[in-house]
């Protein structure tokens, strides 16, 4: 395909996008093929059909890869600390949870995956409690105000402990640069696994790994 054809293709798509949207024409059912034919670029039409197939395949692949896995922790700080207040002002330290498997999560109200996964965190905690596995969740908010977090909590209803870190000190100590960032800590207070991104926490794989961790 030469550069002239590239330019035509570019102009056609841009030319159509806005007016079609403004006219309320269904973009999905609109006959791009005819326009491509009109422009005497049949292989561009083929390209468009191929793009649809490619996008569908990509979606399937993406959905499969969304089954994010816990990964072995590779950071330098093996036994980090926490000393943060919950929404009632009560201070929580990591050492007071010794003997439990602890999921430490760094999250923010503006982070869509954080919001989406919280119900599955409730479910995980409840399932492990029923299985008599000592497990706690400490969800550390990433330096937002108490008012913002309280408003969020009323909507999402987390059944685990929310900790506040308004000055961001723990975010820096734990080397967190993205949300949600998750750390799975063993009964001795050492980070064993990490996980970045939203996930269904009550999945069989995750429950299996936590159950295995609880045996040591």
């Amino acid at each position: 395909m030469n550069n002239h054809q590239n330019a035509i293709f570019h102009q056609i798509t841009n030319f159509l996008k806005t007016p079609l949207a403004l006219l309320g024409v269904d973009l999905k059912n609109f006959q791009f093929n005819k326009i491509c034919h009109f422009a005497n670029h049949p292989y561009l039409c083929k390209g468009l059909r191929m793009n649809k197939i490619f996008l569908a395949l990509l979606l399937i692949i993406t959905l499969n890869t969304n089954a994010v896995e816990l990964k072995k922790y590779t950071g330098l700080i093996k036994k980090p600390t926490i000393s943060l207040p919950d929404l009632n002002g009560k201070i929580h330290t990591l050492s007071q949870y010794k003997g439990n498997i602890v999921l430490v999560q760094f999250w923010a109200t503006y982070c869509p995956p954080c919001i989406k996964e919280m119900p599955s965190m409730n479910s995980l905690q409840s399932k492990l409690k029923k299985a008599d596995i000592p497990f706690k969740i400490l969800a550390i908010n990433m330096a937002e105000s108490k008012a913002e977090v309280e408003k969020f909590v009323k909507i999402v209803n987390p059944e685990f402990t929310i900790l506040m870190n308004e000055d961001g000190s723990s975010i820096q100590q734990w080397q967190v640069f993205a949300a949600p960032s998750n750390f799975l800590i063993n009964k001795q207070g050492e980070i064993i696994y990490t996980l970045f991104g939203g996930v269904e926490w009550n999945s069989k794989e995750i429950i299996k790994k936590i159950t295995q961790l609880s045996k040591f």
Binding site: Y73, G75, I77, V176, F177, T194
Partner: peptide, 9 residues
């Protein structure tokens, strides 16, 4: 690459 919790990017 994708961020790794606990590791500098």
């Amino acid at each position: 690459a994708e961020p790794i919790p606990g590791v500098k990017p």
